[in-house]
């Protein structure tokens, strides 16, 4: 039985199609990254999958049950994107109260340690920084010791250490056979932590597969440099280059093989300078992949 399943899920908001028929199976123990530009329908899909929003048509199930039923039974831990916290309580009190709602919770101290808020247990929630609050929300998400973790942009507002700790915990849980699905804007997070990537654009799944497969599809990197009198056709002929843009002296090359492109670039253009290599920015990659639909 799949940990999470979507069958022909659609959703319209007035004239806007938020989801245009999404089929998705998430197997037990998988770590799936849901990627897509703003407005692609990631949050809508997650909300429908949790039973918080009714689909226009189609169905979503968690281990074969209606999602809301699974949520109420305590099998799902969710880190929502836009939720708030109680301000006038201590972190420890909040985590303890939420853990108490679940049938088989983690000890609250364990959930707080996993989220890196153990030392904040005695602090008032209202006095926390944005990053600390996000960690508390992660602790709440873990409190019920769920078999399915659903994280909507979990690392927003977290510092480097916070991100590392969060992914370490997610990884530990999936290594133990639990399932995690997360929506993110950061391709690197998907690359490092997901077994499988689902790309959503304009409410449709445009790619779904192992990270390496999808990475090849989204493609490569950007080489930026400064070059006097650059000729686009010459640059296009460099190995690996898929796309060239020239604005005055500023040149941007999109490439599938940055090593080969760079070697050839230096060899062919003596005057090239300020060369920088940048990873593919997800938003722009999507524009390429989805023909501007994103």
């Amino acid at each position: 039985m799949n940990a999470w399943e979507f069958k022909g899920v659609t959703k319209r908001y007035g004239p806007v199609t938020a989801l245009g028929g999404v089929d998705l199976d998430v197997g037990e123990g998988e770590t799936v990254a849901l990627l897509g530009p703003n407005g692609a329908g990631k949050s809508t899909l997650l909300s429908i999958g949790l039973g918080l929003v009714a689909p226009g048509s189609g169905t979503a199930t968690v281990r074969g049950r209606p999602p809301l039923e699974a949520l109420r039974a305590g099998g799902v831990g969710v880190l929502p994107q836009d939720s708030g916290l109680l301000e006038d309580v201590r972190v420890g009190e909040l985590v303890t109260a939420v853990a108490g709602m679940y049938p088989r919770p983690l000890p609250p101290e364990r959930a707080m340690r996993a989220a890196g808020v153990e030392e904040l247990a005695g602090r008032r929630v209202g006095a926390l920084s944005g990053g600390q609050r996000q960690r508390v929300r992660f602790a709440l998400c873990l409190a019920g010791d769920p078999t399915l973790l659903v994280l909507d942009e979990p690392t927003v507002g977290l510092d480097v250490e916070g991100r590392r700790a969060l992914w370490q915990e997610v990884r530990a849980r999936t290594a133990a056979g639990r399932t995690a699905v997360f929506a993110t804007h950061y391709l690197t997070e998907a690359e490092e932590y997901a077994d499988r990537v689902v790309l959503l654009a304009a409410g449709e799944v445009v790619a779904d597969g192992p990270v390496a497969t999808v990475k090849a599809l989204v493609g490569g990197a950007e080489v930026r440099c400064t070059l006097d009198g650059a000729d686009p056709s010459g640059l296009e002929a460099l190995p690996g280059v898929r796309q060239v843009s020239v604005e005055g002296r500023a040149v941007t090359l999109r490439t599938n093989d940055s090593d080969a492109t760079l070697r050839a670039l230096f060899a062919a253009y003596e005057g090239v300078r300020d060369v920088r290599l940048e990873g593919t920015d997800l938003e722009s990659a999507f524009v390429t992949l989805t023909g501007g639909r994103g």
């Binding site: 949520l71 109420r72 929502p80 708030g84």
Partner: peptide, 8 residues
Amino acid sequence: RQLAVTPL
């Protein structure tokens, strides 16, 4: 919205 994703 946070409570909505708990069993409560």
